[in-house]
Nucleic acid binder design. Structure first.
Length: 492
RNA sequence: GGGCCCGUGGCCUAGUAUGGAUAGGGCGGCGGCCUGCGGAGCCGCAAGUCGAGGGUUCAAAUCCCUCCGGGCCCGCCA
């Protein structure tokens, strides 16, 4: 987003709050049973636990219930292993947060059919019933307040949080369904509405435009269930219309598993006459994996972003203190925070989005391998040279002819290439292009001032010219950092 | 079965859009550099059949084909 802005676009960041799904309802169900309390810790973390525990209990209870009406055999064995699996999730949670697990277990023990209660909660929420609405929104907003805090910490600002439920309540989904009703690509099966994506794509010649082989048959898209209720994609279609209405161009930053769904969505909207949907671009990224497998909130297998920042910070602190013994604890902590944000942002942004990232603490916390601290270090060295010169580099009228070293030439050229790198990175949605550029500039600069003294240059002309060069690097790095969302320290 | 993505020294990664010279970096390993702007740094060394095989070309990590390995998707889930 910062990159697009730097490119000259007017950008608004929207965060889609998927609050109508089963996940949310499970968490909200648990939340209701607990009496809708104020979270006792960082709200998003706490609600995450409520979700994991609730979900596990529900899984166990319903598997047990099913087991009673299942004859011995393969099915029963499967149910048993299911129970075992969720019991182990539960005992893990009991170890981590005994009070919460205990409270939820007690509260749910009396519920005969939790799955049904949850389904009821979902439909009540979708209909906008006050009780369901109050409970779920309350919980969701607690959760979002936690998100906002964390995102703010990492320097990420969201302009608007868009609730999926609003699309149902303000009837944008209903309007969409009405407009689909007349389409010749729509077929019905009971109250279910099914869209023939392949036929539409062929008729409008979209396969070629969207980069799909003609022989590849696109799967149909179910827009409403047999009972008439809507699905995630249906809401997403309505949401896309809203977005397209408000912007010239829409960038959907969504994981790579959504690729097909994004394609289908485009075909449906195009067939409805919204040709502008081709200006909606899917910017995919691969998910971060844990060594133990994919992250799973349901199973309580995840690493919270906060804990990454926290760990990085606690790792940075002693390093900062070692180098700056005179610094107050407060300033040390502030600096450590900046360094950890830089480290984490560089780590995430520095790898192409098509590469899967395997998360290990080892790698995230390795400040030697991590380019963030290195880049900040380089910047603060440049800064320090400028400070010590006692001059305002911008007011010097240097004789650039004095600069004869190859590295000096390279630095000047490299700095001049910031704009083209920004343009390329922004246009291809690849921030790593910019972080690669920053690293290259840092490498050359570090090597340069290692062998060419600036303040101790042999002649005054050379010193001035070098100072201006250092200033160029300084300014260039600062711009690049701001586009990458990396905070800049004056020293470190 | 079909579609998409990834495969570059022990590990991570750039380069693939627009084919060009000894395939850049980093981590780890080894060896140097603090009487000169802060050593989160600098200098050097070892380590590569660019997944494999064909093809196009004067020239292929890059383009085409086939295959192998890994991942994702093809739900009236979200």
């Amino acid at each position: 987003m910062r990159l697009q802005r730097a490119r000259g676009h007017a950008v608004r960041a929207h965060f889609y709050v998927d609050d109508t799904g089963r996940q949310t309802a499970i968490a909200a169900f648990g939340y209701q049973l607990l009496g809708e309390p104020v979270p006792s810790e960082k709200p998003d973390h706490w609600i995450g636990k409520v979700y994991t525990v609730s979900s596990a209990i529900v899984e166990v209870l319903s598997a047990k219930e099913k087991l009673q009406s299942t004859p011995e055999g393969e099915d029963a064995a499967k149910l048993r292993s299911n129970i075992d699996e969720w019991m182990s999730v539960l005992s893990e949670q009991a170890r981590l947060s005994p009070d919460l697990t205990d409270a939820l277990s007690k509260a749910m023990a009396g519920i005969e059919t939790p799955q049904e209660s949850i389904s009821r909660l979902i439909s009540e929420y979708e209909e906008g019933r006050p009780l369901a609405k109050r409970a779920i929104r309350k919980m969701v907003d607690y959760c979002l307040s936690g998100f906002k805090e964390t995102l703010g910490r990492a320097g990420i600002h969201i302009d608007s949080f868009d609730y999926e439920s609003d699309l149902l309540w303000d009837d944008s989904v209903g309007a969409l369904l009405d407009s689909l009703e007349g389409s010749k690509y729509v077929a019905h099966d009971g109250r279910a509405m099914i869209f023939d994506v392949d036929a539409a794509a062929n008729d409008f010649g979209l396969k070629e435009i969207l980069g799909v082989q003609k022989s590849h048959v696109l799967p149909r898209l179910v827009l409403t269930r047999r009972d008439g209720t809507t699905l995630y994609v249906t809401r997403d279609l309505a949401y896309s219309l809203k977005k397209l209405d408000r912007a010239d161009r829409v960038l959907n930053v969504i994981g790579t598993p959504q690729t097909l769904a994004q394609l289908q969505l485009k075909v449906v909207l195009y067939a409805l006459g919204y040709k502008k949907v081709l200006e909606q671009i899917h910017v995919p990224y691969e998910q971060v994996e844990l060594p133990t497998g994919s992250m799973s909130g349901r199973r309580g297998h995840y690493v919270a972003f906060d804990s990454i920042l926290d760990e990085a910070k606690s790792r940075a602190k002693p390093e900062v203190a070692k180098r700056n013994p005179e610094m107050s604890a407060e300033v040390t902590s502030e600096l450590a925070e900046k360094i950890s944000v830089a480290a984490v942002r560089f780590a995430l942004v520095g790898v192409g989005a098509s590469k899967k990232i395997l998360f290990t603490w080892d790698r995230v916390l390795d400040f030697e391998a991590n380019s963030g601290p290195y880049a900040l270090y380089t910047f603060s060295r440049a800064n320090s040279i400028l400070q010590k010169s006692g001059k305002v580099a911008d007011s010097i009228e240097p004789d650039f002819g004095a600069l004869k070293l190859p590295d000096e030439h390279r630095l000047a050229v490299l700095c001049a290439r910031l704009p083209e790198n920004v343009a390329f990175a922004a246009d291809t949605f690849r921030p790593e292009v910019l972080s690669e550029y920053v690293m290259r500039l840092c490498d050359v600069f570090n090597s340069y001032y290692g062998k060419a003294p600036v303040l101790g240059a042999p002649t005054a002309e050379l010193k001035d010219a070098r100072l201006v060069l250092v200033r160029m690097v300084h300014v260039t790095l600062r711009s690049a950092f701001s586009m990458l969302g990396v905070p800049v320290p004056q020293r470190m």
